[in-house]
Each structure stands twice: as structure tokens, then as C-alpha cells.
Design a binder for these strands. Structure first.
Lengths: 211, 211
DNA sequence: CAGCCAGGTCAGCGTTTGTTTACCTGCCCT
DNA sequence: AGGGCAGGTAAACAAACGCTGACCTGGCTG
């Protein structure tokens, strides 16, 4: 599997056409990080071995410890990128249209959409308390932002309700990726949009759903 | 931790007051199964070691292989009990009052409520395809039963919507147990009931919520 | 009471895990 | 052209894993 590691010459060019350099620390680090993100998100921390990740990245196993100190360091780096992805994404949040946002985030089916992978990563635990606290804080921040966007009168109730909507989002991502339950797994973004609109409008107090 | 394994004499009785027998295969099997359920549900399959389970149950490690063939066999037995729990529970489903059912199932905070543990177990994977198919089928069955209970016109749309409600349920259980997000984690069954009522009424087409 | 077997213990097997050490080698600089 | 070093490789480490076989022993039966 994974016959061409990362940037193999497609056998039609002779010397050094595309590949940047033979030895590129930054590139290697990046390839390793992407492979780890995918495996950790799909299979979880404990199941994934460093040899799996290295093989998928087409890189020597020892380089994981060289660039990330340890397996846990690599996982923390993955989570950091996930946090960055989520943070950047929620800045572009449409104030109204929360349902649309969830649908588009959750919708992409099997492609490695960055945000779907990021959400899955936030659900994975390595057992390290400090990293768990990171997961907790960013998930809390997302729910707070959603509660603020939804408005409403009682702030405490709004936060609880926003976290229920967040639970729905994470639950859908889980059911679509881990299990393969039909029709949820093969539902398109369009098909998810209508029920999600109903859900958001009902659960979030002051949320407006544009036509 | 767990100083008294399962049924220690409470130090106030001399000889053999409560403990049934010194050697009881059925009891040992049961204790093992309960310990495994708790650990698998809380930490997942790969993280949990057979030595952990045996220690928590207060029995010898080799007995796991004696009574359940393998670690995977033990996990399958755990899932089977979870399936039984879920099946028995959904038989007593109130036709109306789906929200009440979810709230009561999800509500119990840190106690090892059987149904909460069962739902968590259904989210854990051992990597075995056959067992995964079991998880898939029972989760599908739950959503189908919910869709049937909710009624509605279009059966396909109703199923998708029921699975979204199921995703919410599983998401809440996950957020409450794995992470400790506030205020969701410490919300009582009562506090969860109101938003869940709104959610079910909006997402499930023909669901009636009694006053 | 003696015999027997289900129930339980113990030590160690082979494998896989994350990690480290010592060693090459491509690439830049003067 | 040729050191020098960052980038990469290979082999092996100790620890932990699931599992197994040979071995005890409590408790019922004849």
C-alpha cells in the first residue's frame, strides 16, 4: 500500500522536475503530521502505531521522535493544528446560518476535509491530562461562540443549548465516520441541511435561519 | 484503588456470612464482565489491558482467556450485554416522550448507569469487522424504532432525522463522560429535558411531547 | 474419608510497542 | 574539491502486551 510515498516522479520525467529537495526537514515534518492527523482521527490514539504513521508518510520511524520528541508529542502537534483549524473556521462563522455551517462542516463524506478531521481529533484522547485540557478548552470555546452567536436571554441556558447542538455535530461526525449507518452516512450536505435548520432553530433560542 | 474487589466480608463477620462460595465460576465470570464493561466504556478497547480488567475484578488474568477465549471475546460479550440492555430498554419506550427517554438515559451523571455504559460501549470499536457490524445493526435498529415511534410522512426522511437525534444522544453521552465540558456535564436530567423536548419536537416530524 | 474435577494460580512464552543508539549520506559553503 | 553538518537510515533496546501450559486446591460425590 501507498506505493508512492509523497512526491514520487511520475516516471515521465527524467531528472529532478517537481520534487523540491531530496532532504527537506520541513517537508518531512509536514508529511508526518498529515499522516498522523489522518490516522489518529480515523483510528484513535492507542490503536495507531508510530510505524503505521511512518509507513503511511513514507518516512523512517525514528524521524517521529526526532521531530516530535515522542508519539504523544506528535499527537499534541496534531491537536494543535486541529485547534488552529477550528479557531480559523469559527472566525468566518456566519452569524446567522449556524445550521448551514454545521451541514457544510459535517457534510463532506469520505474526503479528508480538514475540519471534519479536526473535529474527530478533538474527540480522541491520548490519556495525557494536559492535552485533554486543551481539547476541553477549545470545545468549550466553540460552544461559547455558538451561544453568543445564537443570542438569547438567559446566558447559562444558551450555553447549555449550544453544547447540545455541538453534541449533535460531533455525534453526526462520529456516526458518519466510525460507523457507517445509513442513511446518515451517505446523506449529502443538502439533505442534512433541512433537519439541521429545524434543530438549530428549535434548540438555540435567538437563532435566525435565513431563507 | 478498588480496595475491596467485589464482595469482601465487611470485617464485622467472622467466618462465611455473605460470600456465596469460595470458587464460583458464574460469579467470577460476572465480576469480570462488569469490570470489563466499565473499563471498555470509559477508556476504549485498545487502551484497556486485560491485566487492568483482571485487577479491577480482583481475579487472575488467565481467567479472562478461560471464560471468554480472548480479549476480543470478552469485548464481544460486553457488547452483547450492551445490546441486550438497549433492546430491553427500547421495548419500554414511551411512544410519546422521546425527549424524556433520552434525558433519563443520558442524565445520570457519574454513576455507572447500565444504559449509559451500554451506549458508550456501542461507540467503542475493537477493530473486528464482525463485532463492528453488530454495533452498526443495533444502532440502526434503535434509530428505526425511534423513526417509527415518531411517525411522520416520508419514512426515509424520518429515518435520517431519527439518526440525527440519535447522534445528539450519543454526542451528549460522549461530551459528558469523556470530556467534562460545563455546564453540559453537570446538567441534571431536569435541565436537559427542556432543550431536548424542543429538539425532538422540531427534528422528529410527528413527535408529540406531552406536557 | 478418598478421589476427582471444576476453579484458580503461576511463570513464562512470543510478539509488538515506543524509543534510542550508532551509523550513513546528500547538500551547502568556502 | 572537500570538510561539515543537517537529514535520514538501520538495528536493536526494554517494557508491555495477549496468551498458554503446567501446576495447585477447594469442595462435592461415592
Amino acid at each position: 500500500m501507498t506505493a508512492s510515498p509523497a512526491g514520487d516522479p511520475p516516471a515521465t520525467c527524467d531528472d529532478a522536475p517537481i520534487e523540491r529537495r531530496r532532504r527537506d526537514a520541513g517537508r518531512t515534518r509536514h508529511v508526518l503530521l498529515e499522516a498522523a492527523r489522518a490516522r489518529f482521527a480515523r483510528d484513535g490514539y492507542a490503536v495507531t502505531t508510530v510505524r503505521d504513521i511512518a509507513e503511511e508518510a513514507g518516512v523512517n520511524v525514528a524521524l517521529i521522535n526526532r521531530y516530535f520528541m515522542s508519539k504523544e508529542g506528535l499527537f499534541e502537534a496534531c491537536l494543535t493544528t486541529a485547534v488552529t483549524d477550528v479557531r480559523r473556521d469559527e472566525n468566518g462563522l456566519p452569524i446567522d446560518g449556524i445550521a448551514e455551517g454545521i451541514a457544510s462542516r459535517v457534510g463532506s463524506s469520505t474526503d479528508d476535509d480538514r475540519l471534519r478531521v479536526a473535529l474527530l481529533l478533538l474527540l480522541r484522547s491520548s490519556g495525557d491530562d494536559r492535552i485533554d485540557e486543551l481539547r476541553r478548552s477549545v470545545l468549550s470555546a466553540v460552544s461559547e461562540k455558538m451561544a453568543a452567536a445564537a443570542g438569547g436571554t438567559d446566558p447559562d441556558s444558551a450555553l447549555l443549548r449550544a453544547q447540545i447542538v455541538l453534541a449533535t455535530t460531533l455525534g453526526i461526525v462520529t456516526l458518519r465516520s466510525s460507523l457507517g449507518i445509513q442513511p446518515l452516512s451517505s446523506a449529502t450536505e443538502q439533505q442534512l441541511l433541512e433537519p439541521l435548520r429545524d434543530l438549530v432553530r428549535a434548540v438555540l433560542p435567538g437563532a435566525e435561519t435565513p431563507s
